[in-house]
Structures are given as structure tokens and as C-alpha cells.
Design a protein around this nucleic acid. Sequence first.
DNA 1: TATTAACACGAAACCGTTTTCGTAATACTT
DNA 2: AAGTATTACGAAAACGGTTTCGTGTTAATA
Lengths: 339, 339
Amino acid sequence: MKPKITLKDIARELEVSISTVSKALKNSEEISRDTKEKVQAFAKLYNYKPNNIAISLKNKRTKNIGVVIPDIVHHFFTTVIRGIEKYANAKGYNVIVCLSEESFDKEVINMEMLANGSIDGFIMSLSSETQQKGDFNHLKEVTDQGIPVVLFDRITNEIDCDKVIIDDELGAYMATKKFIEQGKKNIALITTDDYLSVSKARTQGYLKALKESELGVDQSKILKLPSMEMDETSIKKFMDSQELDAVLCVNEIFAVYSMRLAQQKGLKIPEDISFIGFTDGLLSKYANPSLTVVSQHGEKMGEVSAKMLIDKVESEEEEETYQTKILEPTLVIRDSIFH
Amino acid sequence: MKPKITLKDIARELEVSISTVSKALKNSEEISRDTKEKVQAFAKLYNYKPNNIAISLKNKRTKNIGVVIPDIVHHFFTTVIRGIEKYANAKGYNVIVCLSEESFDKEVINMEMLANGSIDGFIMSLSSETQQKGDFNHLKEVTDQGIPVVLFDRITNEIDCDKVIIDDELGAYMATKKFIEQGKKNIALITTDDYLSVSKARTQGYLKALKESELGVDQSKILKLPSMEMDETSIKKFMDSQELDAVLCVNEIFAVYSMRLAQQKGLKIPEDISFIGFTDGLLSKYANPSLTVVSQHGEKMGEVSAKMLIDKVESEEEEETYQTKILEPTLVIRDSIFH
DNA sequence: TATTAACACGAAACCGTTTTCGTAATACTT
DNA sequence: AAGTATTACGAAAACGGTTTCGTGTTAATA
């Protein structure tokens, strides 16, 4: 057990003042060559490293960023974290991850825990409960205190801050259009209630593509589930009640599950029925057949979010100008549709 | 913009000393009822919250725990994090996540970043590069400084600290035994080189089960890949060169991919060939057919690790006694084998 | 030789808390 | 009335750094 050594220890040992040690270690011009060498050698020998907490207190900067997300088991959030981590780490920042588990209360508690000095800024995606309630006071409090916030994916327009999203409407539009081009006539949508900002946008994209075509919209071909939670019964009932030849799903799990239902009915994919999902995860890649998806570029989204946040944290000016970055989704073509 | 209020602000405003404010807020007996009420009311009005950093500096306790893992995109690690987060959060701790990306250097850098006061302890799983090199000096340094460490899943015996693993050997043994019981004769293993502690243990379980049976071991039925990275070519070559009726894989991706290869050859699962993987992730559940797996109970593992760490962090005594918890794996039976 | 400049360093404030200890003012004994 | 106990508070140190400013010593200048 060799406990951490402090400036005071070095100062005592070398019989100089703490200030001298501090300056010597920073190679200050003020200190003589001799003293600097002595101090630096001693510091290296005893492996001196400044205490982060003390520096944070002095600088009022922690070099930590708080990430509050609804879930970590979903591939999309996982890749976003990776993107954040990558950028933040390169800039010398650490990432504190908090999970709201889709709960408003947990989101609030997590933010309060972090907002008292632990972090320099937040990157977050709203819990479904928060979007449903429409209560964003916890965000307002934080921004009021001057703590920078970047919202990604699940955002709200009621808070002024930087935002990063993908063009979900465009993604769904592209996917639906693809179905139409390939001659599909009965195109279903499996989504969730509109309170989730992403689902709403995706539904709009789907509707837009259909309205532009001669097919038109058939409300009975839209299944709105209460949440992103898997609900096998509802999906099965929906799939059984319809004559479909294409299905667009708001995530990859819904898509893979409904593919299986179709296969069980003896339908051939993609000849009889085609599928497209959202989120380019492991599931899509290794499903059988592999699933065509709208990729959300989670890692990129994480990097962009981290860059926006850190830029704001490190900028001197107090300009209150916020931007919303919209990333382009891309269609990753796999075997669940015609190539 | 209303910046954070400090004790000093309250003291100035109320014309009392900082100490009085501090004590009043803690409901100290020393302070008169009048003063306490006045201070508390003022604090509530201005939403005073103590600064975490200052408290950390004073207490030499951050209430942060550092989690260093090789990867976050894999389901197993993701569930472990969730388990850690859940337990840690309930205890008032925050979780700082760092990714080593299987790189030794990143692991070292991450630990050094955190070891200078940012965290009270580490929970980690070694990067493959670290296990390969066998260099654990960064861990030794940290434990030498008296920082508690809990190692999970990918561990080493060269460091004295608490450890949490599942009985990988048993898991593989159970799976292989299952194949044998179901009359399978040509049982393959797709794994990685032995430097990965988990792969080594799993291989041993596989070998043990075969040696106990009349089948015996056939080295040509074992494929050792250089890492957990997907290597489609090698797996395809291996699967093509063998007459197999059962395959045990060291993760779910290998398993799902080799299932697909078998299906492409026209084999029926599980009649002609059965599959078992490790890791009970989304992939296993939604694969077609669904994949039987050895579940590692990641979330449980995370909770146990967090509990061990926090117990150590909060214990007064400096007992240098370490334990290794071994969790039992379970077989989750799905359609890739006979029920 | 007196004045000034350069050099090398230390004292002290500061970041925001907690906590020990000292003490003035009041209340209680005898 | 003198001594003691209690109450209610403040001063100051401490956590581990950074940074400003002051100062004693030496060297350069007039």
C-alpha cells in the first residue's frame, strides 16, 4: 500500500513551498532550472499525479459528461454511447452513464444527482414517459443554471438547446418508397403511439410516401403499439388479420419477429412479403433472411453530440445560439427485400 | 441564468457564518430552532444543493465507480452495465463507463484517467489484448494504492482482488452433455484461442464432457479463432470440411452464423444438426430457429460485482481478504436443439 | 556607491464543503 | 453574588490543488 502523494508531501520532502512545487511541475519560468529538475525528478520517482477532484474544484470544470438514456440494451443507444465515448475520451473527458429505464422519475433523479457539480454538461435522449408526460422542467432547470445540454434522437422542441437527430421521416419515406417501387401494394406499418417523437416522424414519412403514390393510406394497415416493448400477441393478431406484401417496422425486433410470423404462414421473403426495419443492429445482420433496415448511424450521432457539447462547454462566449443537426439515414439493403 | 448558490451566498445574505449555515442545513443540535428554520427556508427557496465536488474533496469519496470493459456493443457487457447501474444507483453511486475496445493501451489510459481521484473503485473485465500480453501492472498499481477492484468475467489470477465469474466450464459441459444425451455423435466447438480466460474454460468443459462419454475428443472438430471478432471465412471453411450433427459456439454470433450456413446446405435444425451458443441476447431469442444458449446472467453479474465493490469501498476495516464469486450458468432451451 | 532590474521563491487567497474547537452570552446553581 | 453549565454561534483548519502578488537576494546599471 503506497498511498497517493500530494504536492504538500513533495514540498515537505524537498523543503520548498507548495507553490514552488506546483510551478516547477508546470515548468514555470519563475522557477530555477535546478529546482525544477529536482522537483520533477522527485515527482516522477514517486509517480505523482495531480488529484482530479481538487483540480475540478478549482477550475469549476470536471471533464466529465453525463449521458442519460432510456435504455442500454438496445443496439442503437449502445452505439451512440460508443460514439460519445470515443470523441469524449479523445478530448480527455469521461462519460458518466445513467439509465432512466424509460421512467420520468429516474430521469429526474439522475439529472439532479449529476447537476450538482459532477459534470460539465449533459447528452441525453428522453425517456418515453417524459415524452408522454410532456414535462420538461428538469431540463429547464439545468439549462437555466447554464449547464449545456445536447438532446439526441428523442428530443423536444420545448427546450432550447443543441439537438441531434436523424431525419426519421425521410428514413421511413425512403423505405416505403422502396416498397412501392418494387411493386408492393399492401404496405403495413408497425409503430408506436405518436408521443414518441421518432415514431411520429416515421409514421409521417410512411404516410407521405403512400399519399404521393396511387396506393393511398389504409389506416387498418397501421399498427400502433403502446411502447417500444415487444408485444407478440398484438403483432401476431395484426399480421393474421391482414393480407400484406410489405411491412415497415419502427425497430428491428418488431421486424424480425413479424418476419418469423410470415415464414410460419409459409410465405416467402421477399417474394411474397418484404420487410424493412429501423436500427442497423446485430439482429438485422444475422436474421434469416437478413433484414433491410434504415440505419440511424448511432455512432456518428454520438460523436456529433459529444462534439457539440464539448464545443459549448469549452467556448468562452455565452452566446445563446443553438443548432439542430439532422443526420441523413441510409437504407442498408439486405435479403428481406428484393435487391 | 441563475447560477448555483453556495453556502457562502446564504451566509452573506442571512448575515451568519458559513459554519452556521452548514450546520443548520444538517439540522445540527448546535443551532437554534429559529436560525435553522430561517436557513432552511432560504435554502429551499433558492434551491440550494451542496456541490458534489467540494464534498468529494473533503470526504475523499466521490460516489463514482469506474467501469472499464472491452466493448459495449455486445449484449453481455451491456446487461452487466445495467446490473451495475441498477445496484450502484440505488446506493447513490454514479457509473463512469470507459471502453478499452480490446486494447491494452486504452485500458491503461482509462484506468490512469480515473485513478487520480475520480472514482472510489473499479469494476472491470479485461481486454483481450491484456489477457494475451499477460501484463497486469496497471491493475497492480491501482490495488497498491488501495483502490478496490472487482474483476468480472474476463479475469486473471495474478491480481489479488474480488472476482465474479460464471462457471464457464460447467456451462460448456452442460451444453455438450445435452448434445450427447440427445444422441449427437459429431460435436464441434467453435471457440477462440486460450488466452481468453472464458474461452479456455469453455473449451475445458467441452473436452471434459466428451472424455467422459464414449465419443472421445477429435481435435479436428475444434475451431479456434484468433479473437471474438466475426470471421465468416474461417467458420464457413470449417463447417464445410466437417460432417457434424452438433455445434457448440462460444458466443451467439458464431452460433447464429453457423446455423445459417447449415441451413444453406439444406440441413434441418435440430434434426440434422443442433446448435448451442453462449450469451442469452436478442440474437438468440429472435434467430430462426431460436437458439439454445448458455445464459451468463449478465445483469446478475453486474449487480453482484457492484455489491462487492461498494461493500469494500464502504467498509472501515482494511482486511485484505478477497473472494471469488462463481455464478451458475443455465441452459436456455430453444428450437436449435430438441426439446 | 546608490538605484534599479531580474530572479527565485513563499505567503496567502481561493474553489465549496465539513468539522473541531473556542467563546460570548445567558441561565442555572449554591 | 460568584461560580458553573448550557446555548448558539463563529473562526479556522482541512481536503489538494492554482495563481496572484509581495519580497529578499543578487546582478546590472548609472
